[in-house]
């Protein structure tokens, strides 16, 4: 075992030097992505409404989504959903007592990052019309 500095009751000043392990980063991003989707829920419902309201609304949505900035926002939301989904599936497996050991948990955190990253990249290409 390598020497580890024991940090208890860390103060704000310690935060900059505190290195969060990969599962910790995954976890806080899971929380942030969840809170983000909660906040933009009315926006998503508005888009859903627009898409189903009429042929005209659907076309309006199409022209909205032609804007590069809107596309960027959509990519961000796609990432939030995919990250939340992948990290969430990992939590469900942890709840089943699978991969609870430190090494296995770190590996599965990396896998969750890799899968959600790949899916997000695919979503980004689709949103920007490359695919």
């Amino acid at each position: 075992m390598s020497e580890r500095r024991i940090i208890r009751n860390i103060s704000i000043g310690d935060l900059a030097r505190y290195k969060l392990p990969v599962p910790g980063v995954l976890s806080i991003l899971h929380r942030i992505s969840g809170a983000l989707m909660f906040l933009v829920l009315p926006l998503l419902l508005w888009l859903f409404d627009l898409s189903l309201r009429s042929e005209l609304g659907f076309g309006h949505l199409r022209s909205l989504a032609a804007n590069a900035l809107v596309r960027l926002v959509l990519v961000g939301l796609a990432w939030a959903l995919l990250h939340h989904l992948c990290a969430g599936v990992r939590y469900l497996t942890l709840d089943l007592d699978l991969g609870v050991e430190r090494q296995a948990a770190r590996r599965s955190a990396w896998i969750a990052f890799a899968v959600s990253g790949l899916l997000s990249a695919w979503a980004a290409l689709a949103i920007f019309g490359v695919l």
Partner: peptide
């Protein structure tokens, strides 16, 4: 506020779905 926010979204979602 969270409960009201989500309840409002839920009612809106019903209205959107049953318009189609």
């Amino acid at each position: 506020a969270t409960i009201l926010w989500l309840a409002g979204c839920l009612v809106w979602a019903v209205q959107i779905l049953w318009k189609v």
